[in-house]
C-alpha cells in the first residue's frame, strides 16, 4: 500500500529525514518510535502533504501512485489520513459542518452524490458512539475550547467518519492521561481492518500497550536504525534510545 524509498525531507534549510525507507501493507500496523528531534513528526507531515516541508530526494508510492505529486487534499480524498499531534482550533465552524464538508469532498472525488445534513448526522452519531464521544460535540466548533483528550478523540472521530485506507497517528498519546489514552486507543482498535494500514508515531511505548503493532521501527536522526516486532517497543522502554544509537553519534 505504501512504499517509502530513500526519503530526504526538511523544513526551511534544516534537513530532518535523511534516507528513510518503509514498506507498509494493507492491514498492518507499524509503530515508528524515536526520541525528540528524530524526525517522527516530519515524517507524518510530509506524508500528509504539509506545505512547509520540502522533499529533497526519494519517492513515496501509495497504492501504486506517486504520493508526493498529490496535493494535501487529494491525498486525503484518496484515503490518507493524519491524526494531528496538535489539532487546529476552528472557531465558528461546527464539527458536523466541517466533517460533512470533508466527507462530501471525498465522495465528490469518488463520483458519489453529496450526503445531505440529515443523512450525515445519522452517520456521525454512529461514529461518535464508536469513539465514546458525547453527541453534543457535533454542534460545537471544531476543537475550540476542547481539552487535550477531547481534541485527540475528535481526531479519531474524524478518522472513523472518513474511513481512510492509510492512517497516520502523529503522537496521538502526547498530553493524554491514562483514561483518555485508553478511550482513544479503543477507538483506534475499532477501526483496525484488513483493508486499512496504520502508522503509529510515538515517543513512548505506553500507547503500544493499547494499540498493539505488527512492526516496530526505531527512528534516529532521520533514518530507521532498527526494526522488529512489538517486543522491540518493550526493550526500548526498558533501555531508552541510547543503546541503539550508532557509535559516535551525538545525543
Amino acid at each position: 500500500m505504501l512504499e517509502i524509498k530513500n526519503l530526504h525531507a526538511g523544513i526551511e534549510d534544516k534537513k530532518i529525514l535523511k534516507g528513510f525507507n518503509l514498506t507498509v501493507k494493507a492491514g498492518e500496523i507499524h509503530a515508528i518510535m524515536g526520541p525528540n528531534g528524530s524526525g517522527k513528526s516530519t515524517l507524518s507531515r510530509v506524508l500528509a502533504g504539509h506545505p512547509a516541508y520540502q522533499v529533497t530526494a526519494g519517492e513515496v508510492s501509495y497504492q501504486g501512485k506517486d504520493l508526493l505529486e498529490m496535493s494535501a487534499e487529494t491525498r486525503a480524498q484518496e484515503g490518507v489520513f493524519m491524526a494531528f499531534q496538535y489539532p487546529t482550533e476552528i472557531p465558528g465552524v461546527s464539527n458536523a459542518y466541517f466533517l460533512r464538508a470533508a466527507v462530501n469532498a471525498v465522495r465528490a472525488r469518488r463520483g458519489e452524490p453529496e450526503m445531505d445534513a440529515v443523512e450525515f448526522l445519522d452517520v456521525l452519531k454512529r461514529k461518535m458512539k464508536l469513539v465514546e464521544m458525547d453527541p453534543a460535540f457535533a454542534s460545537r466548533p471544531v476543537n475550540a475550547g476542547f481539552s487535550g483528550g477531547e481534541k485527540k478523540r475528535n481526531e479519531i472521530l474524524q478518522m472513523a467518519v472518513l474511513e481512510p485506507k492509510l492512517a497516520i497517528l502523529d503522537e496521538t498519546d502526547s498530553g493524554l492521561d491514562i483514561d483518555a489514552l485508553r478511550v482513544v486507543a479503543h477507538g483506534v482498535n475499532q477501526l483496525r481492518s484488513p483493508e486499512r494500514a496504520m502508522i503509529v508515531v510515538t515517543h513512548y511505548q505506553r500507547l503500544l500497550d493499547y494499540i498493539v503493532p505488527d512492526y516496530v521501527h526505531v527512528l534516529l536522526d532521520g533514518k530507521i536504525v532498527k526494526s522488529g516486532g512489538k517486543e522491540l517497543a518493550l526493550e526500548l522502554e526498558a533501555k531508552g534510545y541510547d543503546w541503539i544509537r550508532p557509535v559516535g553519534s551525538k545525543v
Binding site: G49, H50, G92
Partner: peptide, 22 residues
C-alpha cells in the same frame, strides 16, 4: 492545511474558515 488534510479543496477551506470567523 487542517481542512485540506481532510480532503477539503483549498477554495472551500477558505470559504469555511471565513464563514467561521463571521
Amino acid at each position: 492545511f487542517y481542512l485540506k488534510s481532510r480532503g477539503i479543496e483549498a477554495d472551500e477551506a477558505r470559504r469555511i474558515l471565513t464563514r467561521g470567523f463571521a
